[in-house]
């Protein structure tokens, strides 16, 4: 079992906190957006960009780079903030989210923002795109790995399971999907809207290697992501158990903050809780 340097973990934790502040501020300034599913995804995306992925922000089109797709496109404030902290775009640009002419569209536009690998927003399509990218790597004998984050709401989509079958059928092993299992979707708890359990068993039955982790614990995230590169002959799924709205007390587990911006008071409270300046 890998042992992670305490300094690495605390560096990632500080980064995650900073990104949460960006996210809350961006959505507050935009006046709309999806804070809940952005905040639940922070640690996994930070771990990928600041430790796991083989990338170069100065060369966003480098052919051998690892790819990340945010299939749950509504969580893009976290992606944009991570790309900014990583140096793909200026941090000041984050304030333009959802504004006219911005590269930071309400849902990711791969033609607008450097580092955005796929246009998503209509749910359920990202895993298929990831399968295509992974197959392209195999054809070109390139060693890059493809990471796709899917929301647990996207498990309702038939296409997610079409992609799950295809990845397994084509023995795609340079692909890791991460389910942001925050248990909530727009209309309510996932268990009430559409039952998806037993989730791990379903993916195992589809031929995937499955790991379950605490999606806010960097040690568990890093261990699972690194282990997934060693699995041969089949795709990897990481079920990251997360809390929707993580980090902001009144957003945690609150369905109402799936797709709503905080008001001024709420914004100020959130920044105070995150130790940032409003």
């Amino acid at each position: 079992m890998a042992v992670y340097d305490k300094r690495l973990i605390s560096k990632l934790e500080r980064k995650a906190n900073l990104i949460r502040q960006h996210v809350v501020r961006m959505i507050y300034l935009a006046g709309s957006g999806h804070p809940g599913g952005s905040l639940s995804a922070v640690e996994v995306i930070v771990a990928l960009y600041f430790h796991v992925m083989n990338i170069d922000p100065k060369k966003p089109d480098w052919p051998n780079r690892d790819r990340f797709i945010l299939s749950k496109g509504h969580g893009c404030p976290t992606w944009y903030a991570t790309l900014a902290e990583k140096g793909y775009i200026p941090v000041e640009e984050l304030d333009t989210l959802r504004k006219l002419g911005s590269r930071l569209q309400g849902h990711p536009d791969m033609r607008a923002c450097p580092g955005v690998e796929a246009s998503t927003g209509s749910e359920g399509q990202g895993l298929s795109m990831g399968v295509g990218m992974a197959l392209a790597a195999r054809l070109d004998r390139k060693l890059y790995h493809v990471y796709v984050m899917i929301g647990d709401g996207e498990l309702d989509c038939g296409q997610t399971w079409e992609a799950a079958m295809a990845a397994s059928h084509f023995h795609v092993d340079n692909l890791t999907a991460i389910v942001d299992r925050n248990m909530l979707q727009l209309d309510g708890p996932t268990a009430h809207i559409m039952s998806v359990e037993p989730l791990a068993d379903k993916w195992k039955a589809f031929g995937w290697h499955v790991t379950e982790i605490d999606g806010h614990n960097f040690k568990e995230i890093l261990r699972a992501l690194e282990k997934s590169k060693d699995v041969k002959g089949r795709p990897n799924l990481i079920i990251a158990h997360t809390v929707k709205g993580k980090g902001v007390s009144y957003m945690e587990g609150a369905v109402s903050f799936h797709g709503k911006a905080p008001n001024k008071e709420e914004y100020e409270q959130a920044m105070e809780e995150l130790g940032g300046k409003p």
Partner: peptide, 8 residues
């Protein structure tokens, strides 16, 4: 969507 991924 797989075609899109390959094209990307």
């Amino acid at each position: 969507s797989i075609a899109a991924g390959l094209a990307a």
